[in-house]
Amino acid sequence: MLQTKIHNLTLKNPVMTASGTFGYGEEFADFIDLNRLGGIIVKGTTGERRQGNPYPRMAETPSGMLNAVGLQNVGVETFCKEVYHRIKDLDTNIIVNVSGSSIEEYCKTAAMIDELDNIPAIELNISCPNVKKGGMGFGTNPDMAAQVVSEVRKIYHKTLIVKLTPNVTSVVEIAKAVEGAGADSVSLINTLLGMAIDVEKQRPYLSTITGGLSGPAVKPVAVRMVWQVAHAVSIPVIGLGGITSAADALEFLMAGAKAVQVGTANFIDPAVTMKIIDGLEDYCKRHRINDINDIIGII
């Protein structure tokens, strides 16, 4: 009833977890059955180990939060040697978010992940707002976005998802550029660039001054962008941004997303993904929907 497809991937249900909000999945094993998820997008992984940005890295804002973690991660070699072996036998799609500062770094990481049998896809992160070099720099210019995707496409042979930033004038233009360069799917949106100031201390809350806004506050922007992109490209779209309930997930599906990712909500309720899956099943029963695909893109 809930099964859906993203290129060559079959998802038990459209509910995945967003990179950077779910660790490597293990952090949530006490709370949920990870095997029930449609997929897990693990922490953004780079060519070398990264320490990320200095503390403080987060601030709560109305119906959302800002973060400036800056891609702290163990690096692709440690991922392949250690982390992969701990999670590879989970019965779900484990997708690695691949980040970098240069085309060479993206390609190095993607090539190493390509060798891992139980990782059926990567999500190419050309949209991180919290790193000085690269990241969002690739995702805000259609030519650069196309260039990095086409280079990775040459060496990566499985499903290639490209994660898009909302911090552009036309997300459709970027989506079309990466589709033309060989992406199998696009996921959107990454965080919105934002800022908050502690007026008592007269300084920004984040060590980096600006950071990425996520949570329910960004959802209407995300739904709009998913709807625009879904009408403009023929590759499957994965929707994310502020999903906290089955109703939120359904908005993205109706707007044209073939699957969704749950992010910030995992911090508030570590079991929220199970409630969303249950809620989707319940919705389908109530509306006599035999196949969730029947409502995808109906708007």
Binding site: G23, E27, F28, Y55, R57, M58, A59, V69, F267
Partner: peptide, 27 residues
């Protein structure tokens, strides 16, 4: 006592600059 979001080592927001690099205060 650092500001944190998830409390379980997923968001990596609450790090302290330890001698072995950034460590999550929550985990």
């Amino acid at each position: 006592e650092n500001m944190m979001a998830c409390g379980i080592g997923a968001c990596l927001c609450c790090v302290v600059d330890s001698d072995e690099g950034h460590k999550c205060v929550c985990k």
